[in-house]
Every structure is written in C-alpha cells, then in structure tokens.
Amino acid sequence: MIDIIFFTLAIFTLAGGIGTISFSQPIYSAMSLIVSIIAMAGIFALLSAPFLFLVQIIIYAGAIITLLVFIIMFLNVKNEHLPKEENKNIHLTLSAFLLIPLVLVSLKAFNTLPLKSMEIMSGDFGSIKLFGMTLFQGWLVPFELISILLLCALIGAVVYARKEDKIG
C-alpha cells in the first residue's frame, strides 16, 4: 500500500518537475511547480514529518508560489517578450543525459548505508511539539539569524520595488 502511494506521488513530483522546465509559458510552469510541491508534501507525510507536510503546503504552495503567480500575472508578459528558445527540448534531453553520472555517483554513495525499514513511525516523531522543542533548544541561534535574514529580504524587496529612475 505504501509502495503504491509512494510511486503515485513520485510520478506526480517528477512530472511536475519536468513540466516546470519544459513549458515555454511561465504560468504553465508555475502550475506544474505547484503539482510537484504538493506531491512532495505527500512524500513528507510518508516520511513521518506531519509538521513539514503542513509547512510545505501552507508556505511553499500557499505563499511562495502564489507570490510567483501574482508577479507573472502582474507583469503581463507578451509572447514577443519571451526569449526565443528554438532547440530547447533537444538541449534539455542532452543535458539530462550528461547528468546521469552525477546521479549514479550519489546513489553509489548512499548505497553504502545499511538497509533499514522506513515505515511511518508511531509516536510523536515529527509532531509540532517535538519539532518546537528541538527548534528552540538546539537551534535557537540559527532561528534568530533566519529571522534577521527574512527582515533583510523584506527591506531589500521594498527598496527594489520602489519607484526609481536611477538604475540602468
């Protein structure tokens, strides 16, 4: 049963990823990316990470990709503004073949790990309580640094999006 769910989600994830890089209209790519991200949230649930399942759906699919779709619609890109990529599919296929050795080397590295069952864990592994305890006991300084990073990104986005005529 787990196998069937995993393969279904994996096929959706990969189909979404391939659609993301092969459509020429950005809005179709964004829709494919949403499919890929939601299928990956399901895989997180299979890996006993219910909190990350929620975070993936709410923050990734709900906030980041929605922002991206807003920007794509807001720019109102015409077809003549899109870059011309005539041999795009041939280039994509060729470079995918070139990356096969990278995948094989990584798989060989992970193949040395001892086999272990990866069933869904009972108990509260991955729950919000355990997650928060780990976050605030062992990772407090990185957490504060991330909040400073988000503040800097916010200020940077406001500065860039301001009406100006100095750049260029």
Binding site: L14, I21, L102, V103, S106, L107, L113, S117, M118
Partner: peptide, 18 residues
C-alpha cells in the same frame, strides 16, 4: 519504498531536473 534509496533516487532525479 521502505528503503532510503527510493527517496534518494527521487531527490537526485528532481535535483538533476532543476
């Protein structure tokens, strides 16, 4: 799907796609 290799394979294929 109970071994880590399935997940690593999926992650690597997705990484290569990106």
């Amino acid at each position: 799907a109970n071994s880590i290799l399935a997940y690593v394979t999926l992650a690597m294929i997705l990484f290569s796609t990106g």
